[in-house]
Design a binder for these strands. Structure first.
Lengths: 225, 225
DNA sequence: CGGTGCGGCGGTACCGAGTACCATTCGGAC
DNA sequence: GTCCGAATGGTACTCGGTACCGCCGCACCG
């Protein structure tokens, strides 16, 4: 029917996302209406809102699924401490972004410019932080100060993750996974009593990577500490 | 002209805020339109948007001013370390909430229930965190890992503050200022090398309170650690 | 006293996001 | 062929937010 309509093999959701990114680049976010996006995708306005809850949602598709994945990972974690479990779980988030590198960078360019989108991103991050906080608090003895400690741990993990993620998005690093490990080692050291005393800490995450890579990671962590 | 119009001595802005809180309680946030608020305040719809940028803004009036105050405090800080300067500055935020206790608790009840308002609150918090992060990073030597360290410090200060603030809003504590000091001591200890080594840290903020109160605060901090 | 500029206000019209509802179409099951 | 259901499209509506215009009161000035 339409020149770029259902004849094209790509799915409706994909076409909508493509159209949105294109138009936001061409005219800017505010100047693009929902009808514009739907038109370029070759679908009706109603269909857009069936697939995405809002105009912003077209660019932030995966947060719900991702947060569910993270929650599952936490639920099935075998890590000894809650903090380590969270550290392992947050890896999923970074890896997810890396998988869709182009989209992620494209989105980052938009969230850097447009306040509404930045706020949206921040709200999503807060959901991870809340999930982590509750998980950690749930695994701690209910002594006074435990709640604060859980809160600090969750905030540290999320901040460190975002720090590495942004560095990778800005192409300040080519080895985001290794840097994440280094950052997380720093976070864990923060909350490990003996860390500062002995000067350094080595901890092994449950991971199936090449031992050489792990070793390099540890070396970097110690250098940065 | 109107029965509750300019005859009443209270200013337009105050009446709008009162009307908004009332209506949000009576009908809920979504069910209240800006016309409803303007009507109850006895002003036109246009006037509402002249005084507040949006419907949400009617309930979040002071963030711009507060963040400016915090920025000023940081700019004129004489604290030795950047972290301590931030710790002192964040005190302003807590004190501001305490000054408008009723409004703050009312707002907290709303932000707890309504997602849009919670997201708005979170976005505001992120602005403080960003301000702190940039301040700390700006005062640190540009060695590798410094940026991450600044990020972690800012996140810790903001999280600890929010933790105490929420406890006070929920009436879980009657001495929020003392608890803030305890929490901040814990934060500073986190980032102080010798802290974990010696087992505890004592640091004195520039403050003019009764030494007895300070001593009690320290005692609590050590018990919670 | 009258003119004049100005700031605060109200009203109207408009745009665009998001919702509700209904009609259509297409494809598969029987 | 027929029926059913899922996906789609269109229309109309609500509401937040913006732009614009006209009104009124008030101070200042001749």
């Amino acid at each position: 029917m339409r020149e770029d309509g259902t004849v094209n093999g790509t799915g409706v959701r994909e076409r909508l996302v493509d159209a949105a990114f294109e138009l936001f680049d061409e005219r800017g976010y505010e100047q693009t209406t929902v009808d514009d996006i739907a038109d370029r995708a070759g679908v009706g306005r109603t269909t857009l809102f069936r697939h995405y809850r809002s105009k912003e949602d077209v660019i932030f598709p995966d947060h719900d699924r991702l947060i569910a994945d993270v929650r599952d990972r936490l639920a099935t974690s075998t890590a000894g401490s809650a903090l380590v479990a969270v550290v392992e779980a947050v890896r999923l988030v970074l890896l997810h972004y890396i998988e869709e590198a182009d989209r992620a960078r494209h989105r980052y360019a938009l969230t850097s410019r447009i306040a509404v989108l930045r706020d949206r991103e921040i709200a999503s991050v807060a959901r991870y932080q809340r999930l982590f906080r509750e998980f950690i608090a749930g695994r701690m003895a209910p002594e006074p100060g435990a709640a604060l400690r859980a809160e600090l741990m969750a905030a540290a993990v999320v901040s460190a993750h975002n720090h590495v993620l942004r560095r990778w998005l800005r192409r300040d690093t080519a080895e985001p996974a290794a840097e994440l490990d280094a950052a997380m080692a720093q976070v864990i050291a923060l909350f490990t009593e003996s860390a500062a005393a002995s000067g350094s800490t080595v901890l092994v995450l449950h991971d199936r990577r090449d031992p050489e890579v792990v070793a390099a990671t540890i070396r970097r962590a110690l250098q940065q500490a």
